[in-house]
Amino acid sequence: MKSNKLMIKFMERMIQLFRATCRDTGPLISEMMDHTLPLGKRLRVRFHLAICDVCGFYKKQLETVRALARKLGGEEGPTQKEAVLSENAKSKIKDSLKQLD
């Protein structure tokens, strides 16, 4: 019977949704940050996150890494205040600019 087969296929899909492990979910959590996942994968992640706090921690860690990287990339980047051009480099650049005149 065709409808029976379809029903079985549907049930298998549903079982797959709920059976996702942390190992299945981790890479998808990262991939989700880069593009929209197909619906099936998206649901697997959502179902898994609903029952797994630890993967939620993992997701938050990756989101924190992203937020920190963005901050680091700002024009007023807060880090490496001690990093400055050496006097040598500065005069080299000044000379090369003057050669343009």
């Binding site: 706090d53 921690f57 989101e63 937020a67 920190l68 680091l72 807060p78 880090t79």
Partner: peptide, 27 residues
């Protein structure tokens, strides 16, 4: 399929964490 080393609960809002310069330096 479970974690071998469980990720810790950093217990922070990512955007608030980004205001913490010590953390940005660490990154």
């Amino acid at each position: 399929g479970h974690w071998a080393n469980i990720p810790k609960n950093w217990d922070t809002d990512p955007l608030k964490a980004a205001e913490n310069l010590e953390l940005v330096e660490a990154l």
